[in-house]
Nucleic acid binder design. Structure first.
Length: 281
DNA sequence: AAGGAGGGCAACCGCACTTTT
DNA sequence: CAAAAGTGCGGTTGCCCTCCT
């Protein structure tokens, strides 16, 4: 039996659980936020049902957990998804599909919910506009061979005015990813299951490298294993200290790409559309 | 200026898995 | 070992805001 209480311009739903206790739903208030934040700061994460009971919050444990993870946690990053993050999302999704929490482990400060929303609102919208299924080969190929290289181009363009950073036409690009020498991509521990405490950086110096004297550090093997069709991101650091991102991309000429979109005109309009929407560029 | 449409995002739901008792 | 409780995760919903007409 639910009752709806309207206040402050938003709907707060109150229902009764088995014990007759009122359960609040809907948007969290500042007061609730501070109650939850204070409790977790003192007592740590976990035991979310207890949190709900001990704080006097009339919320379910699940609701408390979600609020903390997606909003109140101190390391939650706000603001737009960066180009590098977009590229990573595309890459990891091509590998793992809708494993949002797993993908989120590689994007520090981003929540699975945020990434999921990003995918649904941006990427799926593009698929819809192109009148193809987001899981179709056509769409995945467009991501892999058109959008991702284009993203990398943009990252490179934004990151460096330096010509030495370009490795010619060999599909090696650079960006300003904040990586240290001998960098390895590590999942963000703060998103790991049953984690506690502060987030660790998701990028750490590599413990070892197969090529001892090489300054290159490829994305960890866990990330690169089984990547589709020889398409992978390689992160390395050149002598200037700038990070190079190489994408092993098969070369597709315009004619091939035209095949996906039915000819030059269609492709042109496709790019026009992309430029208008700017969702990843 | 007003109303409608669509997008973005926070929050909820249900199920599956893990841990505890 | 089984049941209950707790937790995690992906899918979905609905509200609010912005843009367009």
């Amino acid at each position: 039996m639910d009752a709806e209480v309207r206040g402050c311009g938003s709907a707060i739903q109150v229902s009764s659980d088995q014990e007759g206790m009122d359960i609040r739903r809907g948007p969290w208030t500042d007061e609730e936020d501070s109650m939850l934040k204070n409790y977790v700061t003192i007592n740590g994460e976990g035991r979310w049902n207890s949190v709900a009971r001990c704080t006097g919050l009339k919320r379910t444990g699940k609701s408390c957990r979600l609020r903390w993870l997606n909003y109140l946690r101190p390391d939650v990053k706000r603001g737009n998804i960066t180009l590098q993050e977009q590229l990573l999302i595309l890459e990891l999704h091509s590998r793992w599909g809708n494993r949002w929490s797993k993908i989120a482990q590689y994007l520090p400060g981003r929540t699975d919910n945020e990434i999921k929303n990003y995918w649904r609102t941006r990427v799926q919208k593009q698929a819809k506009q192109l009148k193809c299924d987001v899981n179709s080969k056509q769409f995945r190929d467009a991501m892999r061979y058109v959008w991702m290289p284009r993203l990398i181009e943009r990252i490179r363009a934004m990151a460096t005015p330096k010509s030495q950073c370009l490795d010619g036409p060999t599909n090696t690009y650079c960006s300003d990813l904040p990586l240290n020498n001998q960098t390895q991509l590590i999942p963000n521990q703060s998103h790991a299951p049953m984690s506690s405490g502060l987030a660790e950086p998701y990028l750490r110096p590599a413990i070892s490298s197969t090529s001892s004297d090489s300054s290159e550090a490829r994305v960890s093997s866990d990330l690169t294993n089984d990547l589709p069709c020889g398409n992978y991101i390689e992160i390395s650091q050149n002598e200037s200290g700038l990070i190079q991102q190489g994408l092993d991309i098969q070369t597709y000429d315009d004619q091939h790409i035209d095949g996906w979109f039915g000819g030059g005109d269609t492709l042109d309009s496709f790019w026009d559309y992309q430029d208008q929407n700017m969702w990843f560029l």
